[in-house]
């Protein structure tokens, strides 16, 4: 068996659960600030913020995953992540409760999470892994940030695209 590839993930919490995204997709961490509402947007799109002159949409991750709403304050964190749309690289913000840290996980240590019961919409889950005995849900940013929830192209683990 070939040597296992180890990727790093940024972990954060939403409520009681711990989630992770591929760290190579992360551009910047910011604290929450007021957003400008976008007309006709999806309910999980909070609005637009100014990131040094660029206008960036911010996604309410709780709503996107179907979790209960919470109030945002200045301790709330926004993670800016890159995504590819057509020919262009775009940036989105993800609102999360709090950051936890960075974990390393080998590809073999990631299990598929196809059929277990959760409040979380399974389309957005890339797999499950463990760190210090805690279960961590790896998110698929490509489905997550796509309005239709469809997978653009053949996205497996996000690490493939980064």
């Amino acid at each position: 068996m070939p040597e296992d590839t180890v990727d790093e993930y940024l972990t954060f919490s939403l409520g009681e659960e711990e989630y992770a995204i591929d760290i190579l997709r992360v551009r910047e961490i910011r604290s929450w600030e007021a957003v400008t509402r976008i007309p006709f947007a999806e309910s999980w799109e909070c609005g637009l913020v100014n990131v040094r002159g660029a206008i960036v949409p911010v996604v309410d991750l709780r709503r996107r995953l179907g979790l209960a709403d919470t109030t945002f304050d200045k301790h709330t964190v926004v993670i800016l992540v890159g995504r590819r749309e057509g020919e262009r690289d775009k940036v989105s913000g993800l609102v999360v409760d709090q950051l936890n840290g960075v974990i390393a996980a080998g590809r073999t240590a990631i299990q598929d999470a196809p059929h277990f019961k959760s409040r979380v919409d399974m389309r957005y889950v890339a797999g499950l892994t463990e760190s210090d005995g805690r279960m961590i849900i790896l998110l698929n940013l490509d489905t997550l940030l796509n309005a239709s929830g469809e997978v653009p192209g053949t996205a497996e683990l996000e690490g493939e695209q980064a």
Binding site: P39, L48, G53, A54, I55, V56, P57
Partner: peptide, 14 residues
């Protein structure tokens, strides 16, 4: 003027 399409997409009426 900044484009919405840089990081988002077109919004009707805007």
């Amino acid at each position: 003027i900044k484009s919405l399409e840089d990081n988002y997409h077109r919004v009707e009426g805007v």
